[in-house]
């Protein structure tokens, strides 16, 4: 690679290994799309099959879900800023924005747990009907992904602190940013297909 090219190629793409990891992760995300599509399809098929448990329109409220959406969308934005800083080789802002991203993610999780507890309290549990089973598994799988993402990103922040920006560390951070944006996209679909539709039907 000529020096001219090297200057313009981001650090994470500079080694073949980095390129292959990133491509592999894109393919993994394709598999994740199939996984979530299957969960969405299951939810759509079981929609309305509430047996004698509460209807979604009785429980879904706009406030909490809007706050959650705001938190997660903002976290995607701050994650983008972090990557922007990484591309400019600034370690400190990168870490700060990543920490902010994770705090927003934690906030999202907190509200989701509160929301689940609230529904359970109202009599809509994983066990109460096919509809609620599919709701908890769809939203829960997303929540589980966010949880794992927070744990994973925390490990990466420690590695950045220890090692600074290298082709390997920047490739790892870039990959988790892809993952984080992907979770944001999934949430937009959950927000629309589950909450907005569930509130009016």
């Amino acid at each position: 690679m000529s020096t001219q090219e090297a200057k313009h190629t981001p650090l994470e793409y500079q080694t073949t290994h980095g390129q292959m990891n990133i491509l592999g992760f894109w393919i993994f995300l394709a598999a994740e799309v199939v996984l979530f599509s299957t969960l969405f399809a299951t939810y759509a098929v079981l929609f309305g099959r509430t047996a004698d448990s509460p209807l979604p329109s009785e429980l879904f409220g706009a406030e909490i879900v809007l706050i959650m959406t705001f938190l997660l969308l903002t976290s995607s934005f701050t994650c983008g800023i972090a990557i922007h800083n990484m591309r400019q080789g600034q370690v400190k802002p990168l870490i700060i924005w990543m920490v902010i991203t994770l705090l927003l993610g934690l906030g999202f999780l907190g509200f989701e747990i509160y929301e689940f507890m609230h529904y359970t309290h109202e009599g809509a549990t994983l066990q109460s009907s096919a509809f609620w089973s599919s709701f908890y598994v769809l939203a829960g799988t997303h929540g589980l992904h966010v949880t794992l993402g927070i744990g994973w990103a925390t490990l990466l922040i420690i590695q950045i602190v220890k090692r600074g920006l290298t082709p390997v560390t920047s490739q790892k951070v870039f990959i988790i940013s892809l993952y984080w944006h992907f979770l944001d996209v999934i949430w937009i679909f959950i927000f629309t297909a589950v909450y907005l539709i569930g509130m009016v039907v």
Binding site: T42, V45, L46, R49, T50, A51, L126, Q127, S128, S129, A130, F131, W132, S133, S134, Y136, V137
Partner: peptide, 22 residues
């Protein structure tokens, strides 16, 4: 597989005859 596992071990109602499972 995960859905059936959750059905069997945690009592969800995806594929059951009760709870309007399918």
């Amino acid at each position: 597989l995960a859905l059936m596992t959750i059905d069997r071990i945690f009592g969800a109602q995806f594929f059951t005859l009760t709870g309007e499972g399918m």
